[in-house]
Design a protein around this nucleic acid. Structure first.
Length: 410
RNA sequence: GGGGGGAUGCCAGAGUGGACAAUUGGGCCUGGCUGUAAACCAGGUGCGUAAGCUUCGGCGGUUCGAAUCCGUCUCCCCCCA
């Protein structure tokens, strides 16, 4: 978005700087150093890495992207590390589900998907972004290089990481390679001469190792900034695909909007800060009205949700999603883009439900009817066994959100 | 190399010869209340209209009768070396 090739002007306005450092962040280390860099008027290199081993990206990943965008808006250059090299090696870390090795092609495809989504959030002005492939420096690393790198660090230093310490104390295994990952990530910082590195709070240790290794290799240590982990749509657990509480960046507009509207109010403030893609002043206004009760949570949620949909699908899609949502859920009307099926009549309601895929078995279909969840053209269906015949299209509904149009067929 | 413990429905996890289609919790579905919030309440959640049928890792056996006992195979976990 809005790319221009000219050299960016560095913003050193104190209020803007403080906002970047204070809003939607967890820690800034080292604070004084970071402030000094931002005030200096020099274009900083702000690094963030991503792991292309999983192609599914959700808006939790976008939290960091949005913060990167803020740095760009101050005129700085973001440096995206594509972790293609480590992704191809696999990660045998203590996670229960072992990460398998990926082929170069898979990694490449995943990375491309990621970058496509990435540029929907960040500025693609080449003066403000640089993509760095990790394999370009690790590809020809030899054993001597590895030893040189590992010699900079001790076991005691590694044990400072909480995860390692607790596993060591509980006598759970820690693979040697696991010690290498923080070092490799740290070396990335050396390779790209990072002034700042950003990451989720779970990355704190690795980010700090970057400082040590840079210092060891005669570079000025980067400052680090951590951003919170976004809660999922349940408002409690962190967003992840496996918990099915995520909003994927490639979700359909209506889906995306609906998921965002379903978050509990308790999570709304967090979503305003971390997910909503709105100007700072508007975020402030919305948060205030939410906090003091002058704004209706539903309306605030709508602005948040629409802004996210607009980010990935455009304003028109966001408007469309909002209207569809209002029509279906607030007014109980039928959505306009429902799937169509043809059915040969006469047919039982059970047969209809199965034909459109609302029920996987006859029992399930009957259950839906008995529980009052089935409607035809808005009229509740009471009888499980009736033979039905329609010579015009009908709208079949199961529960509140499943709709299908059934046409008379042969 | 030696020893021990497991495998039950979407998940966790009871059940250890009949009353088990299988307790309970989570999830999910439906209804109610709503702002499709959340919370809460109620019901449901193998297949079959039904009679009934097929399930408790696989196969085989004992028994009138097995998720439960025996044999065997596959897979998982733990402890010792």
């Amino acid at each position: 978005m809005n790319s221009q090739g000219n050299t960016p002007e560095i913003v050193t306005d104190e209020e803007r700087i403080q906002r970047v450092l204070n809003t939607g962040t967890v820690t800034v280390q080292v604070r004084e150093s970071m402030e000094r860099k931002l005030r200096s008027g020099r274009q900083l290199r702000v690094k963030m890495g991503f792991d292309p081993s999983a192609p599914d990206i959700h808006i939790g990943h976008a939290v960091g992207m949005r913060k990167l965008r803020e740095f760009q808006d101050l005129g700085h250059k973001i440096v995206i590390i594509v972790g293609d090299w480590t992704a191809q090696i696999g990660d045998p870390s203590g996670r229960s589900a072992q990460r398998r090795m990926l082929t170069a092609e898979e990694v490449q495809a995943n990375a491309q998907t990621y970058l496509d989504q990435f540029f929907k959030v960040v500025d693609d002005n080449p003066e403000k972004v640089e993509i760095a492939w990790q394999s370009s420096w690790f590809g020809d690393f030899d054993l001597a290089d590895v030893l040189r790198l590992t010699s900079k660090f001790t076991v005691a230093q590694m044990m400072a990481r909480e995860d390692f310490r607790t596993r060591f104390e509980s006598e759970s295994p820690i693979g040697i390679v696991e010690f290498l990952y923080p070092l490799m990530q740290a070396y990335d910082s050396v390779a790209v001469h990072a002034d700042v590195e950003m990451g989720g709070t779970d990355q704190t240790f690795n980010l700090l190792v970057g400082r040590d290794i840079q210092r060891e290799m005669d570079q000025k240590p980067q400052d680090i900034l951590t951003v919170p982990i976004l809660a999922g749509t349940d408002g409690v657990q962190k967003m992840s695909k496996s918990l099915d509480n995520y909003v994927g960046v490639t979700d359909e507009p209506n889906d995306m909007y609906g998921k965002l509207m379903s978050i509990p109010d308790t999570a709304l403030d967090e979503y305003l800060i971390l997910a909503a893609n709105l100007p700072a002043s508007e975020i402030d206004t919305l948060r205030t009205s939410l906090a003091d009760g002058t704004g209706h949570p539903r309306d605030i949620k709508d602005k948040m949700a629409a802004s996210v949909v607009a980010t990935y699908h455009g304003e028109a899609a966001a408007d469309g999603a909002r209207q569809a949502f209002q029509r279906v859920f607030q007014q109980g009307q039928v959505p306009d883009d429902i799937e169509e099926f043809s059915v040969a009549y006469p047919a039982t309601i059970v047969a209809l439900l199965r034909a459109v895929g609302f029920a996987g078995s006859n029992n399930e279909a009957r259950r839906l009817v008995q529980q009052g969840g089935v409607r035809i053209d808005g009229e509740r269906v009471e009888d499980t066994d009736a033979e039905l015949t329609f010579d015009t299209p009908i709208v079949l509904q199961a529960g509140r959100r499943r709709f299908a149009r059934v046409l008379p067929g042969v």
